[in-house]
Design a protein around this nucleic acid. Sequence first.
DNA 1: TTCGAGATCGGCT
DNA 2: GCCGATCTCGAAG
Length: 204
Amino acid sequence: MGQRQLIPRPFYDRPVLEVARDLLGAVLVHHDVAVRLTEVEAYAGGHDPASHAFRGPTPRNAVMFGPGGHAYVYFTYGMHFCVNLVCGPEAQASAVLLRAGEVIDGIDCARLRRPGARDRDLARGPARLTVALGIDRALDGADVTRADSPLRVLRGDPVPDEQVRRGPRVGVSSAAELPWRMWIDGEPTVSTYRPHTPRKPRSA
DNA sequence: TTCGAGATCGGCT
DNA sequence: GCCGATCTCGAAG
């Protein structure tokens, strides 16, 4: 894994859909666990009603309005973390949600973090991916282009266009029809598509 | 295999 | 207060 190269900052200073597509096959590393990204989802910042940045900057989403190549880590549903990589023109607040991947290094460590899970399920889904890698809010704002960062993104083997598939985003209640979810065709580590389902109100 | 509900809490209206 | 870029388990087909 040491021979893989860091992806430099300009990679992220491009339109979000291009960055998302090129992140497929890239390798996310946190300490001793490495994951090859097989599924990502694009969020187009302030103009995208499904984006956390849609209603403007807040303390939580502040990182999205900063420079590209930084990680936006947020907490949701009272129990899950998810990771995004900020990209696009600065202050546009575009980001790519990392949805799933294949553990290619440190698999023993990942298994300990997700006991009982099959190997293909270790990082299958955005919240599972953060568990397998040990990512939490402390990494919010981390610069993934720096060699001395705890969280880094490295080049992987390129994924040819014919292996890239696109479809609707998962779990969002607005603009869900945009085909901004991308994954590598035939990968068993890609999460199964489930349309957004509003939850029933609680009752006694 | 598919579906529905619960868990659990921070952020924003 | 309300609701979420989710996951897991249990029940039914």
